[in-house]
Write a protein that binds this DNA or RNA. Structure first.
Lengths: 338, 338
DNA sequence: GTTCCTTTGCAAAACGTTTTGTATTCTGGC
DNA sequence: GCCAGAATACAAAACGTTTTGCAAAGGAAC
């Protein structure tokens, strides 16, 4: 019987009837938009409490042209990066009464387009979008009808669209800088085969930092391998076999670092005593390796919060006219491997 | 300018005007609810395409009393279990045109109640709810107004509310059965201090399986420790110090198993040669330990899908009247540690 | 006692759909 | 040539709000 749901939803009309006033008056009591006498206010409030009335958000949205809903369109909620984004978003949007509609697209452009379209028909108040190679064309239908859009991880500036992204170049610099500071003299980098995207940018930052420090950062020290645990192990073996092996190695992500750790262990080397290892991304596993992995966090939670603030700013009109681009400096998470 | 969004939303009225027909006709063309002449149909369709018209889901929902939205209320989207649920849910709901509204509550009853209330005012078509100690009272306001509800992980039968849950007792049985089958003769269990919930049920299943196999499953072999990596290590040390140490140990979850692995390694024992180790939950890390951890998956993705199907069944009325309770048998994920 | 504000409450329109009842036109049978 | 019935299109109501324009009532000033 609880299941049956015989109880009808109570509407503003019910309240008005029960209180013996017009729905206008009820609305005004609720919004304070126009003054209502104390007596009437009290009566209406009592009835509202008795009946447990809550305004229908659908009708409200239709009238107000505002749904208090924000869309989050991402490649895959199952990738641990995005739940953090979602959480950050909710952290700042929730207190403002907004809720989050999430869709995973598997980074398929057709699915992405459909999702954006779907969100438009639902009249979401804002859209946070992340693709694989985040492309502003995916979201332009939303932007065109005036929905505030924030792109996550866009590589380059977009025409008039806000972007939140982690600064991978800075990340490479920061990581390398940390190692330099800790006294390592020969710092290697294990990266992927590609020449674009986060891995490439991290190498860029690494090179820059080492150049500044007057240390070598090229040829034998930068090794390209498949981005995987095995790839990391193979790369590490190559580095350790060098005539002048590195005393520290930076890995383009934590999984690769895991492989590097494997290879070092296989050679009987101690980490960080014989060779330091450092990763990127601070995935959950990083805290659980032996030794626990020193890594660089790209602060997804804060990125999510930044997206939320950006959206909120657009909604209440407090944001500047032009597009904003918020870059996050990654942060070193110091554990024991470096 | 893309940002400005001067383009107004196109409504059914615009289409009707442009096509020189009434909005009724446009609606009928779209729904096929009543026949419309071929000529008119063609004309209307052309205009719709030209204008890029898509019905406003808000207005639609208001009229139809159906929003094509399902709420997912969970403790924390950041806990890797729930994104899998979310994904499973979307997998079955998406093709039916439903979208998912997600909220994290941190398992705070006040927040949970607010979230459920919020979802009701949004007139979601269904509600999937998971709490820490999932309690049906949290969701009864929704059930009372006739919103189909599915509880995730409820421990006992609920009055008329569908439940999806993993069968922890069966999980314990399956895990222990697997070890028995592989020839282990002295099987221990590391569990938490509590006497209720998943850990306790797993122990129950384990006991049952061993009793059936005529093996010991009590006193020194079941050890209670804090559920953490360190706790796992301490428990394992106690087990290994026994006069008759076990040849296999089951851990109440993967993190505890990680600790057990640590302790075995510290003693210079090989896994699974000297002692086998097995976990529960199949978290991401499980595949990355050395040796990779054999564990038991509670199949969260499938649970999410089951929730979706349950909800869909309630929505299209194809479900039986009574409440359903779907229990998932966990599945052994065989790797190398046992 | 009239006039003029101020206070208080209501009626009606609008948001964008779907659906029902009805009016018009067409078709064919007689 | 008329009529029944089918085919086609439309007007209007309803979903549940918020907001604007007005009207009624009350009080103060003259």
């Amino acid at each position: 019987m609880a299941q049956q749901g015989r109880k009808r939803h109570v509407s503003i009309t019910d309240v008005a009837q029960q209180a013996g006033v017009s729905i206008t008056t009820v609305s005004h009591v609720l919004s304070g938009q126009r003054p209502v006498s104390a007596a009437t206010t009290a009566k209406v409030r009592r009835v509202i409490a008795e009946l447990g009335y809550e305004p229908n958000q659908l009708a409200r949205g239709l009238r107000l042209q505002r749904t208090n809903t924000v869309a989050l369109v991402i490649p895959d909620i199952t990738n641990p990066f995005y739940p953090q984004i979602a959480r950050g978003l909710q952290n700042v949007l929730g207190p403002a009464g907004l809720q989050v509609l999430v869709t995973s697209t598997d980074a398929d452009p057709a699915v992405e387009d459909a999702a954006v379209q779907q969100m438009i028909t639902r009249r979401v108040d804002g859209l946070a979008f992340a693709g694989y190679q985040t492309d502003h064309r995916r979201v332009s239908p939303a932007a065109e009808v005036g929905i505030p859009v924030v792109l996550l991880g866009g590589r380059t500036a977009r025409p008039g669209i806000d972007v939140v992204s982690s600064d991978d170049v800075a990340g490479g610099e920061i990581a390398a800088g940390y190692l330099v500071e800790r006294g390592y003299r020969r710092i290697a980098f294990i990266t992927g085969p590609g020449r674009v995207g986060a891995p490439a940018n991290r190498v860029l930052g690494y090179r820059h930092a080492l150049r500044e420090a007057g240390m070598p950062s090229s040829a034998p020290l930068v090794v390209r391998e498949e981005i995987s645990r095995d790839g990391g192990a193979r790369a590490m073996e190559r580095l350790l076999a060098l005539r002048q092996p590195p005393d520290a190695v930076l890995c383009t992500n934590d999984v690769v670092a895991l492989g590097a750790l494997d290879a070092a262990k296989a050679r009987g080397l101690s980490v960080p005593g014989d060779v330091a290892v450092m990763g990127f991304d601070d995935i959950e596993i990083a805290a659980l390796t032996t030794p626990p992995l020193t890594t660089v966090s790209i602060r997804p939670l804060e990125q999510g919060e930044a997206i939320g603030r950006l959206l909120l700013g657009r909604l209440d009109g407090s944001a500047p006219r032009g597009a904003q681009r918020i870059l996050f400096d990654p942060a070193v998470v110091r554990r024991e491997s470096a």
